[in-house]
């Protein structure tokens, strides 16, 4: 069989060349996709970030003129204008927004982990027949628009809202809740919205965990609660990493939740970016913020990828 295949290949010389072209075409598709829909937009944003704001349509000056060809591009590169980035480092507002974003994302991720781990654990321990139903229940909220779900939280959290009314009725509080438009509300919204992204990867790891490992630990004299810490937790760390990064990365750039539930004192980069873009019409500065956000978020993604590749190698 193998020799047959070889003789055919030899006989029709051109088919070898065609095969090579085909082999190049296959990876070319995702590369084109990435180039057109990811790299090109980033390049455009970067170009805007390097330009100056102006009152015009569009509201920024070109960095170089395409019509002047290569010399203009090279000139522009020679006198690179990074004043927008310089401004970001100088104005404490941006520092505070960046740090606040990271802080809120970090705290939210920890809260998500504390809430999501027990949920995922319970799901993985549930009777096998029940598990698909539980997974379905976790995914179900996605069937409604994210925006509508965050709006719904306003109705729950506002002083005359459902939660406040319930607590007043139960006599647990004396005056209406004042958590709307505070950071607490932002945390509630974030934890609610991102919980599935934490629960699902955790569930996937915990469900695959070999139950005989826990029996072996118990057989060797380890009580179940201790076996949880010595066996279950270390073996679920890949799921913890996946869930944490899947939540942390988008939360850093989160815009809708702090905009709708947060107050004026809730600083986050996503909100700053939108303010620069829509309120100040300073597209170059907004673009610079976007680039900074990208850089902040790329770090954790690299870490995650590194963990994933190492895990895949080990699995092999």
């Amino acid at each position: 069989m193998a020799s047959d295949g070889k003789s055919v290949g030899k006989g029709v010389g051109t088919s070898v060349g065609d095969g090579r072209l085909g082999r190049l075409l296959v990876p070319a598709v995702p590369f084109l996709w990435l180039g057109a829909l990811f790299l090109a937009p980033v390049a455009i944003v970067l170009k805007i970030a390097l330009s100056d704001a102006t009152i015009a349509q569009p509201p920024y000056l070109p960095v170089f003129d395409w019509s002047e060809g290569w010399t203009a591009i090279l000139d522009a590169l020679g006198a690179l204008d990074i004043e927008n980035f310089a401004l970001l480092t100088e104005d404490p507002l941006y520092w505070r927004a960046a740090l606040s974003s990271l802080r809120i994302a970090a705290i939210s991720t920890v809260l998500l982990l504390l809430l999501g781990y027990p949920m995922a654990y319970a799901m993985a321990k549930a009777p096998e027949k029940l598990r698909p139903v539980l997974v379905m229940l976790v995914i179900l909220p996605f069937w409604t628009s994210f925006l509508i779900r965050v709006y719904a939280w306003i109705g729950i959290l506002k002083p005359e809202g459902l939660l406040s009314a319930l607590l007043l009725h139960l006599g647990l509080i004396d005056e209406p809740l004042a958590i709307m438009n505070t950071e607490t509300a932002v945390f509630v919204g974030i934890v609610y919205s991102y919980l599935p992204f934490m629960v699902l990867p955790l569930y996937a790891t915990l469900e695959k965990l070999d139950a005989t490992l826990l029996e072996a630990a118990e057989d060797l004299g380890c009580p179940p609660w201790k076996a949880f810490w010595r066996i279950t937790v270390p073996l679920s760390l890949p799921g913890v990493a996946a869930g944490a990064l899947l939540c942390f990365i988008p939360i850093v750039g989160e815009y809708v939740i702090p905009e709708l539930l947060g107050g004026s004192d809730t600083l986050m980069l996503g909100k700053t970016l939108s303010d620069e873009f829509f309120k100040n019409r300073d597209w170059p500065l907004a673009s610079a913020v976007a680039i900074v956000l990208l850089v902040i978020v790329v770090g954790p993604i690299m870490v995650y990828r590194d963990i994933e590749t190492r895990r895949m190698e080990r699995a092999r």
Partner: peptide
Amino acid sequence: PYRRPANMMFQSYA
């Protein structure tokens, strides 16, 4: 099981 003076070698080794 964790208080029994018996130890087990599992089929899958575990």
